[in-house]
Computed example of a mutant assay.
Amino acid sequence: MPPTNNPSYRQRRLGVELRKLRERAGLTVTQAGAHLGVNQGRVSMIETGRSALSADRVRGMASAYDCTDEALVEALGTMTGRRGRGWWEESRDHVPVALVDLAELEHHATALRVALVVHIPALLQTTDHARALFRSVVPPMRQYEAEHRLSHRVKRQGVLHRAVPPPYTAIIHEAALRMNFGGPSVARGQFKHLLDMSELPHVTIRIVPFGAEDFPSTGQSFDYVEGPVPQLDTVQLDSHHGACEFLDAETQLDKYRAVLDRMDTCALDPTRTRDFIRRLDRDL
């Protein structure tokens, strides 16, 4: 197969995980190639996500690397194939590539957990709220850029409305509810939407009030995307310059799991969260 010149994050992640298996086996790239019957250049292309693989090839590599973690191997097998099959590929020329990669991760997630301090989660925003948010960006977006972002965001939200959606948990700080993007009428629509979404069986929304004790000092918003096995989880961070950063090292995943666990202890339960949102709505 011809090489993939611009692999997606998911393709690169598959290569990274295969490299980890090789290194744990104590093999160099040259030695791995000899085991697999390919040259070292092919191994390097696989490990950078630039060579498409079959699930059978992944199993063969895992066997050559003496990996006995069957759950991990099967999960890696589901990450194979070439790019270009999902709806998100239509957005690749119109929105930042990292947002396309995030949409692909969300599509394949087994569960989604998000923690936000200043903004409403993207998958829970109304179109009016999202438009107001895009208008606040510095430097300003051109209108066509904002519309592409909005279209992409709405399509991303479809993951919560599939026949079999992933469990979704959003921990939102009170500050995000009080930002008032777009004015009171937009805020009321957003509050109603949060209440409606919170009634879905797979959606859990919890608010962290200003008075909560032991709130984690990180204060950073992030998405935690769960894979089919914990080793394939991913953390997505928003940066101040508008890009997405993906973290997948074991220590990083452990850190953000711990942050989520701490936030759980600070947040109101779902019933009290709905009461809290209703009070804010009445106070507008």
Rank of each mutant, 00 (worst) to 15 (best):
R10M: 04
R12D: 05
E17R: 15
R19A: 14
K20Q: 11
T28L: 01
V29L: 15
G33M: 03
V38P: 04
G41V: 10
G41C: 07
V43Y: 04
M45C: 04
T48Y: 03
T48H: 09
S51K: 10
L53V: 00
D56G: 15
G60L: 07
A64Y: 04
C67T: 11
R82D: 14
G86F: 08
G86T: 15
W87V: 07
E89C: 14
S91I: 06
S91N: 10
V97C: 03
L99T: 01
D101S: 06
A103G: 15
T110H: 12
A111Q: 07
V114C: 09
L116H: 15
P121Y: 09
L123N: 08
D128H: 08
H129C: 10
A130E: 02
A132G: 05
P139H: 00
P139S: 07
R142E: 11
E145Y: 07
L150P: 08
V159Y: 06
R162K: 14
A170P: 11
H173D: 14
R178T: 02
R178M: 05
V186M: 01
A187N: 11
R188P: 00
G189V: 00
Q190T: 05
H193M: 08
L195V: 09
D196K: 15
I207M: 09
P230Y: 06
V235E: 06
D238W: 06
S239M: 07
A243L: 12
A249G: 10
Q252V: 02
R257V: 11
A258V: 09
V259D: 01
A267K: 00
A267I: 09
L280W: 02
L284F: 10
